[in-house]
Design a protein around this nucleic acid. Sequence first.
DNA 1: ACAGGTCTTGAAAACGTTTTCGTAACTATA
DNA 2: TATAGTTACGAAAACGTTTTCAAGACCTGT
Lengths: 339, 339
Amino acid sequence: MVSMKDIAKKCGVSVATVSKALNGYSDIGKEKREEIKRCAEEMGYFPNSSARALKTNRTWNLGILITDNLHSGLTHSYFAAILDAIKVTAERRGYDITFTSMSPVGGRKMSYYEHCRYRGLDGVVIANIDFTSPDIIELVKSPLPIVTIDYVFDGRTAIVSNNQKGMRELTEYVFSMGHRQIAYIHGDDNTVTKERLASFYRTAEAYGVTVPDKWVLPSRYRDVGMTERRTRELLSQDSLPTCIFFPDDFSAVGGMNAIRSAGLRIPEDISVCGYDGIPIAFAMYPRLTTLRQDTATVGKIAAEKLISLIENPKIALIEKISVDGELVKGDTVRRMQPS
Amino acid sequence: MVSMKDIAKKCGVSVATVSKALNGYSDIGKEKREEIKRCAEEMGYFPNSSARALKTNRTWNLGILITDNLHSGLTHSYFAAILDAIKVTAERRGYDITFTSMSPVGGRKMSYYEHCRYRGLDGVVIANIDFTSPDIIELVKSPLPIVTIDYVFDGRTAIVSNNQKGMRELTEYVFSMGHRQIAYIHGDDNTVTKERLASFYRTAEAYGVTVPDKWVLPSRYRDVGMTERRTRELLSQDSLPTCIFFPDDFSAVGGMNAIRSAGLRIPEDISVCGYDGIPIAFAMYPRLTTLRQDTATVGKIAAEKLISLIENPKIALIEKISVDGELVKGDTVRRMQPS
DNA sequence: ACAGGTCTTGAAAACGTTTTCGTAACTATA
DNA sequence: TATAGTTACGAAAACGTTTTCAAGACCTGT
């Protein structure tokens, strides 16, 4: 491995001079700088990030905390898409991405925060995780630059998909299509769900519609089986809604199966909506009516805000940023005839 | 940040002693070792990975190269699942995962290999990438421990999903259901596709069936639109197959749309198969007949082999490991009546 | 010719570890 | 008691950088 020392020797200068020439300091003569740069290139020199980090306390490395209890959030297409955007943006700014776990190193378990210190990460993005766990709290309370996704901590920058507006748009669309009997099979009990539910109720109220409790059933995100069962329960009631909202696009597939095996057609007999806008929603037939969350923007902003928190700790603002989604009308909500 | 120096001062010993006590060297007295360990714990000491890496040339960090030309492979559920398994396995063994890109650092573009050197990665997993690009070739020819996924390089360990066997099983199943007219709309022209195609032809031949060229059409993996168009073309021919193979489960959705909008039912009028076994395949109705690739095992073995390559460079074998998938019968292939 | 200024450069310390080698103090053996 | 062997510890160098500070070289204007 060729180091600055080798370049210094070859060029007949000191290591300090090489360092400064390569890092663009102004106090190195033009010809000398050129020569050193050429030398470095020729010899295939590359800096050693460990040595640099040791000296500067900057690793140009961002941590990602995206593991949920079951699995890593990678198989969750919403978070995978966000991670993708974070990665692209970070790389463009010269940062790498490292996963942050609680794995044991050298025999001793490390907390998330300890792990981040160990690796010297410049900052961390936290997403799709149990935000109430003590380990996360410790990390959030630490002095590390941090950005959270879809969850807000006091005094920390957060990027959230605008569930309130999204749900409102989706609900308004359904109302505008003439529906008045709407059921909502919703996801796990967390802040995202609370926001969507609240927005759902508020919008219905604005239309003067009261949603009966029996039409609001709990399921879980991405749980096809449970959503299918809940849908079956719903369909066994004596009065049926004309439209059903599902927790997300994926679980909606389960719900739609339940509907079809009950002999009902979508959307002729019953309309449905998903949430997320995952690729399959655009591909399926009929195209699913849903609200596409703007994962690309969420990820991009998360990375940008984190980096500005790192690079301008004085100036950077602590913000809560809402990213709007986009209504995808699709074909699973039919227009009701005015009765 | 508390360092070994602080512990040494507090315990009245030298830094060397602290280092050895913490790393379990045998030449430190039992009581002293205990005291030092206790001290370290109390003071909240954690090692500095940069300093350690600088000295030992080991980072306990694995690189992942999974970016394809369009986007990062993260949104590709097959690779996301593999990455997930790699991550879990690596973490269990004390390694972290860092993405390896070609981003510019310090103004200069780096090749993949340069990037790996820069970060001091102990090894790299390469997947879902253009294996013919010069940058990849450079990396593969480098002295770095490397494992490739679904592509074989000479003298390098590779983990491949057993496409040959998988396609054979799928084809045999379809034949066993009485089908003799089978079409194959296949994916991009790469080694995976070649293997599947070859296996498809070979199996058909074993059943004494010749597949007409007009029934073997090129599409692209995960391309719903193109697969839908190709399917339409296929359906416009005057003689129709009784079963269609699609590039993968995702694009199969497009194909199925084409079939249905031609007024044909699945599987009553025409049978279909996907490939991959992504979650949606199990959720859709009717359940898709497909071949589930064992992503968990592929990822796990990839990580394990890479780590043994790193830790036992002398002993570790260069291998080509085939991971079998599993036939998922589903409900999209109907049993043909013997005519 | 000299003071003061501007450009260039290098010596050296520091970052936090690991590891080699030396040595002092014991312990066992003859 | 002298010798050899063992055990426990520390001094110091090294890894590859960055950065401060001093200083030499070269001007400029008086």
